[in-house]
């Protein structure tokens, strides 16, 4: 059970994203959040070498170490959740010349913090040697009801990082806002970790396309 929001934090007013990360980390710790361990999210994209196929993004998250999350670009297909051996299977398809890794690997690395029932992952996003930005995931663990969880996380962000509601609404990804909108006429709004990873995917893809500073 978890509900999570993933946002990319602005680092414009700081010298570097690393300095911005220090600043936010300090703020979170002053608020009472405790550092627990490192966190890491990886994105590997496979470009097809065959017609009628699609780019496959494979994500892994240190919070779900036994799983891989795969998504076919521009498809109606939901995210595929697989064992982490899925990456070996994709690499097999790569050696069979069905796919290649043309796009560079994206990595988010940072610190995992805990504050009561909240779990915070704060890290910088790197593409080989270049730092592309700052990423923050706030998860409320004991719940999978999206709307209620979203409200709680919103309050958390407001009190810990002094963000306004408008800022949060501007920062959340299309994936999450589409998901929230789709819930309006549904009773069942069970959140799954795939939605977290879709949010990561959105942000990491946007950062990959962003020119280096």
């Amino acid at each position: 059970m978890v509900v999570a929001i993933v946002i990319s934090l602005p680092s414009g007013s700081f010298k570097s994203p690393a300095e911005a990360a220090e600043f936010y980390l300090d703020k979170l710790e002053k608020g009472g959040a405790k550092k627990t361990r490192p966190f890491q999210v990886d994105l590997v994209s496979y470009t097809p070498l065959i017609p009628n196929s699609k780019v496959v993004h494979v994500l892994s998250h240190s919070e779900y170490p036994a799983s891989s999350f795969a998504y076919a670009e521009q498809s109606n297909c939901q995210m595929l959740v697989a064992d982490n051996t899925f990456i070996a299977l994709m690499n097999k398809l790569k050696t069979l010349r069905a796919f290649e890794i043309r796009l560079q690997k994206m990595e988010a690395r940072g610190t995992r913090l805990e504050y009561q029932d909240f779990l915070i992952n704060l890290g910088t996003v790197n593409q080989s040697q270049t730092t592309k930005g700052l990423i923050l995931e706030v998860a409320y663990v004991p719940m999978d009801e999206t709307r209620d969880g979203y409200c709680l996380i919103q309050e958390f962000l407001q009190s810990f990082l002094n963000m306004t509601k408008q800022t949060i609404q501007r920062l959340i990804t299309d994936q999450l806002s589409n998901w929230l909108r789709s819930l309006k006429d549904k009773k069942d709004s069970e959140y799954t970790p795939s939605i977290t990873l879709l949010q990561y995917l959105d942000i990491l893809l946007a950062m990959r396309n962003k020119p280096n500073e």
């Binding site: 097809p48 065959i50 017609p51 009628n52 196929s53 699609k54 496959v56 891989s68 795969a70 076919a72 498809s75 297909c77 939901q78 595929l80 959740v81 697989a82 064992d83 982490n84 051996t85 899925f86 070996a88 299977l89 097999k92």
Partner: peptide
């Protein structure tokens, strides 16, 4: 013979079709 396996969620068939 070489062998790779993993457990996946139920949308695997439509996922494979998307892959060609």
């Amino acid at each position: 013979r070489q062998f790779h396996d993993c457990c996946v969620t139920k949308n695997i068939q439509s996922f494979l079709q998307e892959l060609g």
